[in-house]
Design a protein around this nucleic acid. Sequence first.
DNA 1: TTGACATGATACTATTTGGTACCATTTAAG
DNA 2: CTTAAATGGTACCAAATAGTATCATGTCAA
Lengths: 108, 108
Amino acid sequence: MIALQGTFRALADPTRRDILVMLSREDMTVAGVSEHFEMTRAAVKKHLVVLEEGHLISVRRQGRETINKLRPQALKSAQDWLNHFSDFWDTHLDNLKSAVEAEGDDTK
Amino acid sequence: MIALQGTFRALADPTRRDILVMLSREDMTVAGVSEHFEMTRAAVKKHLVVLEEGHLISVRRQGRETINKLRPQALKSAQDWLNHFSDFWDTHLDNLKSAVEAEGDDTK
DNA sequence: TTGACATGATACTATTTGGTACCATTTAAG
DNA sequence: CTTAAATGGTACCAAATAGTATCATGTCAA
């Protein structure tokens, strides 16, 4: 199993989650990812390092570029951890049906 | 839908994930949760506040105790976000079957 | 009422984190 | 070879976070 700590830590930042969505469409270089954000390349690179430490992406040097590639296993591990609560959901979620659609929201 | 940012941020800490597991078995007071950790009650209380801000628990005052209760909707929202990558998994995970069971691990 | 107990809130410190600025390294191309 | 472009790495700063210590508040029980 993949280390959950690094994975959940990597998922905690909205920029990193956006990067994962981008990488789910196509592999991208550091510069390619950076184009979609207003922060510097170095900052984006740091996020990519965190994602790599969380096993969420793989990094491959190709010439002078580095290709960042989504790695689905860690995402699956995170989902598996959440699945441990499924029994709880089955038992108690039915009682909360009316509350589900009344959920408010704020930032993201 | 529930705000993902607060939810993922709350899930990023191992202490908080442990608290969620504990609460999946039974509702607990602040002191009850604190017994399972070596940090102070105040520190545990702070984690509980973060969990509440992430909509992962509900807090109810009962007499001089406060009952902390798991709230499954937010966990489900996080899982739903992860589900957005399912298409990617279906497409690419098969090619990685051999790599899945070769995953190393470190902390948690 | 008095006292013990559980909690909430605040102030303070140390650590982590997100970000920028800057420099070294590698590579493609003339 | 030389030069410019793309990238990686390090140093540094500001802000957020985790934790402790401490005190105030409310509540159960005698």
